[in-house]
Simulated scan of single mutants.
Amino acid sequence: MTSPLTIRHGGLDDVPAVLALLDRATEWLVARGRTDQWGTEPHSTNPRRVEQIREFATGGGLWVGETGGRLVGALAVGDAMSYIPPATEPELYVRLLVTDRASKGSGIGTDLLDHARALARGLGVGLLRVDCFGGGDGELIRYYEKQGFTRGEPFGVPISDSVWPGQVLFQRL
Rank of each mutant, 00 (worst) to 15 (best):
A74M: 06
A25D: 06
D36Q: 12
D131I: 09
L113T: 12
L127R: 15
P154L: 01
L97A: 06
F56R: 10
I159A: 08
V50W: 05
G138Q: 10
W28L: 04
I7M: 11
G148Y: 08
V94D: 04
A57I: 05
L5G: 05
L29S: 07
P85H: 11
L127K: 10
K146G: 10
F155L: 14
L173Y: 08
A102M: 00
T26W: 03
G166H: 08
V163G: 01
R142A: 13
P85R: 14
S160D: 13
A120Q: 11
E139F: 05
G61M: 03
N46R: 04
E51P: 00
A87W: 00
L12N: 04
G65K: 14
A116D: 12
L127P: 07
F56L: 01
G126Q: 11
R49T: 10
N46L: 09
P47W: 08
S160E: 15
V98I: 14
G134R: 15
L5H: 02
P4E: 13
Q167A: 12
P42Q: 06
L92H: 03
E66K: 09
A25Q: 09
S3E: 13
I7T: 14
V18M: 09
W38Y: 14
V125P: 00
L128C: 02
C132W: 01
V125W: 07
Q37G: 08
Y83E: 09
S82P: 15
G122I: 07
I108G: 05
Q147R: 08
H9T: 13
L140P: 04
Y93I: 05
T99K: 14
V18W: 07
R101I: 03
A80K: 12
Y143G: 01
G68V: 05
S103N: 07
M1P: 12
P47M: 07
V130W: 02
G33M: 12
R117V: 08
T99N: 13
A87K: 13
W38K: 06
I84Q: 10
E139A: 15
P154G: 06
L92N: 03
A20I: 00
T110H: 12
